[in-house]
Design a protein around this nucleic acid. Sequence first.
DNA 1: GTGAAAGCGCTAACAT
DNA 2: ATGTTAGCGCTTTCAC
Lengths: 333, 333
Amino acid sequence: MKRPTMKDVARVAGVSPMTVSRVVSGGAGVSPGTAARVGQAVRELGYQRNDNARHLRQKNPGTSTIGLVVDDLANPFYALMARSVEDEAHRRGYVVLVGSTNDEPRREREVIAAFTARRVDGLIIVPTIGGHGFLKRPMAAGTPVVCVDRPAEGLAVDTVTVDNRAAAERGVGHLLGHGHTRIGYLGDRFGIWTQQERYRGYLDALAAHGIAEDPDLVRHELRSHHEARAALAGLRALPEPPTALFSSNDLITMGVLDALDHPAPVAIVGFDDLPLADRLDPPLTVVSQDPVALGSAAADLLFARIGGDRSAPRSVILLTRFVVRGSGGFRTR
Amino acid sequence: MKRPTMKDVARVAGVSPMTVSRVVSGGAGVSPGTAARVGQAVRELGYQRNDNARHLRQKNPGTSTIGLVVDDLANPFYALMARSVEDEAHRRGYVVLVGSTNDEPRREREVIAAFTARRVDGLIIVPTIGGHGFLKRPMAAGTPVVCVDRPAEGLAVDTVTVDNRAAAERGVGHLLGHGHTRIGYLGDRFGIWTQQERYRGYLDALAAHGIAEDPDLVRHELRSHHEARAALAGLRALPEPPTALFSSNDLITMGVLDALDHPAPVAIVGFDDLPLADRLDPPLTVVSQDPVALGSAAADLLFARIGGDRSAPRSVILLTRFVVRGSGGFRTR
DNA sequence: GTGAAAGCGCTAACAT
DNA sequence: ATGTTAGCGCTTTCAC
């Protein structure tokens, strides 16, 4: 049982395909009588217009589809962001193609190529570490791009980020204010922009308190829960172990918590909030981002571009919240 | 700067559009020389084939796009599922349109209509409470549908669920085994199939231990963290309050935990695992589902259908894991 | 108010 | 190995 086309509807209703087209598109300039007959035929056949064919011919360009490309859709942070983008799209009658990159430039290219081949009207991306020259073509052809969470190096597009550096400085400053002087830093891949920024914030805070950086206390490139645990073990085995830790994302924080006794024998401040963070012992002090705000800001920028905005690229920096719950204090080991 | 078409590439390469088509589609039956010239022109113009036009004409049907419709993409459970579906799709060269329903039948219809208008090759849906007769048409037209997490009433399609009822019975049985006889039940909207099943499991367990249901201990329709807290307050204000609680999903569990002292003065078993559940005091005992397995099972079924499988609809029931961590024991209040 | 013709960008089915 | 013709399902344009 093949799908009916306008021709089929036209035959049943006894009109021309053009009249069906008019009715299906709102019915302007069609007499109520024929409109009713066409509507009847549509219902009878279960006709639904093929939007791909429609968008192909329609002079008013656009597929009412946007693409969202994140690092990992399973990460609650990006999931919240995705939902927020989807809501904004739905409100405007758009649908969203979604893809994860795993932070692999190759998969990012594949996903974006698949999206632009389907002629999405715009892209919201969390760029990977790799270069993004391949975006120049679709952008020149009129597909706007917005970066969110981190900028794409060398790509002049609207970008929505948070104040990573200042927020990290604030968090580490909190630890310093509690008297900690040996503060461990646990970070994800250093190639990721947010991680560089947060590390800079860590250094800023140390410098502001006149404390020299101790490279022994710094671990980058922690890609998993497991690697975070291992790194922590290394820090605690030091002759002079840290009395406090700054954890640079939620995955690392979870790894750290899992490796520690209960109650945690080290002060901790984490970047990114966790669901039950306030029920831990002690309750976890964190830098909290708002992924919903990130997503809706990115969507607003994108739809403005789709709407014809040709102004210079904007950079939106959203503020984090510093949530003090107790885990930043001093404790004995 | 408009997008180049095959015609443009053909002109630059000095060949016919058909030759360009052949090259772009793999280059079978084209001499290496012309293929090179065409490739050169493609690069020069930044040409990318329009897949919408391609799929329109191509006799081999299909848009290499599937639709995924979940309750709420921001819910970590569905986010994990979505990522799993996306991975399966990506592996097969498909992209995925994603939408949230918020459990509103109207939004579900809108989203699915938008997807079928774009001629997705298949749909994976977490059906809302409403009827699903509107799916009959696209199904008859050849768009396969797979339900996941819960079945769609009256719709004979492949369905992937977990053993909700038995798992809930197991969880409540665990509480009974610890000597609890007054066990509170906290559930989400009773119209949702999983909630009915879990409640039945609760009753099964009580019956197996010869305990009569006490309606005072049962609260359904808890739609939020806040409502869960309020319901719990009601239970604890009872003349004979429950000594144990069975919480029917993660949102409710979080509400309950937030409302309780620390350490929790009531035994708790929750349906769905939570990230830091093992770091709570006491560590939370839960029924744990595997959203990744749900997603990949659904995707496998869908792609089998897309591949031409016309066999009778299958029902796949995945098993949950019961994770005993300690919160199910007896304690004083 | 309605329809006929043309064409969006591409490929199937024939040519040559 | 390459080109021509026709047409996917729809809308634009221009007739009536």
